[in-house]
């Protein structure tokens, strides 16, 4: 009952009110999101599932402020989002590291941007701590061009953490990382966010990952939120303890079912076209 206990005490951090968004180019408009409503509480870990192309990254781009809603509004701490800001850290699906800076340079850049008054020594120590956390301390002097996909992704995660923001927006941050390291990183992010009461929106394709990390899981279908599911499992969760338990199986089946009906509908509409 951990998650619902939280519900009672914590306030709303992010509010998405009737938000729609179109991708517009010269010839056509594409309605990527339609009338989305969502509230995310302070300190909540929200996982977003959904088939490829259903608008998860688009939703994140509205939250981070790079795109503006066509209609509706997004409030953070009650104030409308007017653009990007250091109160929200982002890990992009395509990493987007700065190629001219070393791995450590990338982290230091974020620490400087955080606007916190650290001495040079503190900044150095912090950067190395974050890199140690994602097991990349040895690669600190490499350039992004010299890293593997999974390494780049870890740098991106470390860089987002280094911004020390209240809100973390993560777009499939562990997609390219091997299973063992992924477990470690899940634990790192999970414990760090719990400790510092970060509000997290975490996009993933991995149902297990969503159950392991999320206080709540939403499943999207193209343009809409299909289902919302609270995860009432106590923290900290251990993957090995979870898998096989009844509660876990029930959740898993429910989420999978959400996907299946959606896929079924997709096929139906394609056939009828």
């Amino acid at each position: 009952m951990a998650a619902s206990e939280k519900t009672g005490e914590s306030r709303v951090k992010i509010e998405i009110r009737d938000v729609s968004f179109d991708y517009v180019d010269r010839k056509s408009t594409f309605a990527a999101l339609e009338h989305i409503n969502l509230e995310i509480r302070e300190g909540e870990f929200l996982c977003v599932l959904g088939s490829s192309g259903c608008g998860k990254s688009t939703l994140l781009s509205l939250l981070n402020g790079l795109n503006r809603p066509k209609s509706g509004e997004i409030l953070i701490d009650g104030k409308p989002v007017k653009g990007p800001g250091t109160d929200r850290a982002v890990v992009f699906q395509q990493y987007s590291l700065f190629p001219w800076l070393t791995v450590k340079g990338n982290i230091l850049f974020a620490i400087r941007q955080s606007g916190r008054k650290y001495t040079r020594k503190e900044r150095n120590e912090k950067a190395e701590d974050y890199l140690r956390g994602v097991e990349l301390l040895a690669a600190r002097d490499k350039y992004p061009g010299q890293l593997s996909g999974g390494m780049k992704q870890r740098v991106a995660v470390a860089r987002a953490l280094a911004l020390e923001s209240d809100v973390l927006l993560l777009d499939e941050p562990f997609a390219a990382i091997d299973p063992k390291l992924r477990l470690e990183l899940q634990e790192l992010v999970s414990s760090l966010c719990a400790k510092e009461k970060k509000t997290v929106v975490f996009i993933t394709h991995d149902i297990d990952e969503a159950i392991l990390l999320g206080d709540r899981i939403i499943v999207m279908e193209p343009g809409r939120i299909r289902t919302e599911t609270d995860v009432d499992l106590p923290h900290p969760r251990k993957r090995d303890d979870l898998i096989g338990t009844e509660a876990y199986e029930k959740l898993h089946r429910k989420l999978i079912a959400g996907f299946y009906t959606q896929i079924q509908e997709d096929i139906d509409t394609e056939v009828s076209l």
């Binding site: 790079l66 653009g83 929200r88 850290a89 992009f92 974020a110």
Partner: peptide, 20 residues
Amino acid sequence: AVIEAARTMGVGTVGMLFKV
């Protein structure tokens, strides 16, 4: 993507020109 990453880290116009 690089520009967008910089913007989400709160980089302004001057910073964008000279730091990015």
